[in-house]
Each structure stands twice: as structure tokens, then as C-alpha cells.
């Protein structure tokens, strides 16, 4: 460990705000990416189920004379 104390580590000399805001932003961007992708995944499942159900209904309709 380079820093003497945790307070030192947070302060980063005088550059704490810069360093920590950069790292916080990285975390936000990565989590936002992950969040969007996971949300899309759930949406894709719902969409596929819906599409398949519609397809099934159409097939049933067409079989009725």
C-alpha cells in the first residue's frame, strides 16, 4: 500500500476529486452498458414469446375453414 491511511487514499494528495470522479464515471458507463444489455435481454425474451404466440394464433386461424 502506497498511502499511509485511508483518508490519505481518498484525498490522493490534492487530486482526489479528479481521480475519483474519473473512476466513478467509468463505473457508471460500464454499469449503464450492462444495465441496458440486461434490460434488452429481458425485453428480447418477451418479444420472442409474443411473436411466437402471434404466429401460433395465425396458424390456428388459417387452419379453420
Amino acid at each position: 500500500m502506497y498511502f499511509d491511511s485511508f483518508a490519505d487514499f481518498v484525498a490522493m494528495g490534492t487530486h482526489g476529486p479528479y481521480v475519483w470522479s474519473a473512476y466513478a464515471l467509468t463505473l457508471i458507463v460500464v454499469l449503464a452498458n450492462l444495465g441496458v444489455i440486461l434490460h434488452q435481454g429481458r425485453k428480447v425474451q418477451a418479444t420472442i414469446r409474443q411473436k411466437l404466440r402471434r404466429q401460433q394464433l395465425q396458424e390456428q386461424d388459417s387452419y379453420e375453414p
Partner: peptide, 25 residues
């Protein structure tokens, strides 16, 4: 790697601790 860069690597002679942004930039 990030923890190493943030907490264990020595600061830069000229830039001090601000250079730690390099590990994501």
C-alpha cells in the same frame, strides 16, 4: 489491476496522484 493502480503504485514525480487516471484512460 485497478486496485493495484489506485492504491499500490507510486505517484508520478511530476503529476502526483492525478496520473492514476491513466489506468482507465
Amino acid at each position: 489491476g485497478l486496485i493495484w493502480g489506485l492504491a499500490f503504485a507510486p505517484p508520478d514525480y511530476y503529476q502526483g496522484n492525478s496520473y492514476r487516471i491513466i489506468f482507465i484512460h
